[in-house]
Simulated scan of single mutants.
Amino acid sequence: MNTPADRATRVQDIVTVFLLSITAVLTAWCGFESSKWGGEMSIAFSQASSARVQAAAAAGEARDARQFDLQIYTQWVVATADEREQLAAYVEDRFPERLKVAFDAWVDGGMAEDSPLVVDAYVAPGDAEAADLTARADGKFQEALENNQRGDNYSLLTVMFALVLFLGAMSQRDITRWVSRTLLGLGVVVALVGIGLLTTFPIKI
């Protein structure tokens, strides 16, 4: 005949087995998610690095264009200062389109700025691309940091669930009943906290 103590022990054993089984699955899941988010972090860092390289190349293109425009504009300034109108007109006719647009805007504005290269109408090739790529690089870098934190969060849960496994296993040892139940109860509490946290984390398949 089963005594109340025997039934309580049987219930405790069932709870322990169920707790250990669920926790083992959750531990494996957290390890999987941590690995996936670690991979996403690496991809985002790689994309950020690539975007920065491309941004540097675009910025170099814009810098070279500005240098060329500055040189040809300087020739116009020298010709104008020497009152060589024909040469000044010849140089002006050979302004690149971007400089021509800026030059016209500069003249229309009364030449208030130091040169047409500083007016808003002047846009060197590569400037917009460099800005876009830099913004993309910053975004990907921030994304990588977020993915890294997500991976760390799952790693922390792995540790929590490992603690549950430890507590559950220790509750099965040949120890005093109240100690065994205390360890099991503590394991259940930690498991519930871990599951609660797990439900708030993003999932990557």
Rank of each mutant, 00 (worst) to 15 (best):
S171L: 02
V101I: 15
Q71H: 10
A144Y: 04
V159A: 13
D69Y: 07
E129N: 07
M160K: 09
E97F: 13
E33R: 00
K36W: 03
E143C: 03
Q172L: 13
A144I: 07
E40G: 10
P125V: 01
D6Y: 09
T23W: 04
N148T: 06
T23S: 15
A105C: 09
R52H: 15
L145H: 03
V101Q: 12
C30V: 01
A65K: 00
L197F: 05
T158S: 11
L157N: 02
K36A: 07
N153T: 12
D120N: 10
S49K: 08
N147F: 14
P96W: 00
E61N: 13
L184I: 03
G31P: 03
T27A: 07
S49G: 15
T16A: 10
D93H: 13
R10Y: 10
A130Q: 01
A51F: 06
I205E: 08
A131V: 10
G187F: 00
S34R: 00
D82G: 04
L198A: 12
R7E: 15
I175D: 14
A191W: 15
G126V: 03
K100T: 07
N2D: 14
L167V: 05
L20T: 06
G38Y: 00
I203Q: 09
D69W: 03
E143G: 00
R173Q: 15
A24N: 14
E61L: 10
F68A: 14
A137I: 07
S35G: 08
E146D: 13
L163G: 14
D69L: 03
W76H: 15
E129S: 05
A55T: 01
V91M: 03
E61K: 08
P4T: 04
W29C: 06
G39M: 05
W29K: 02
A79W: 08
S35V: 06
F201K: 00
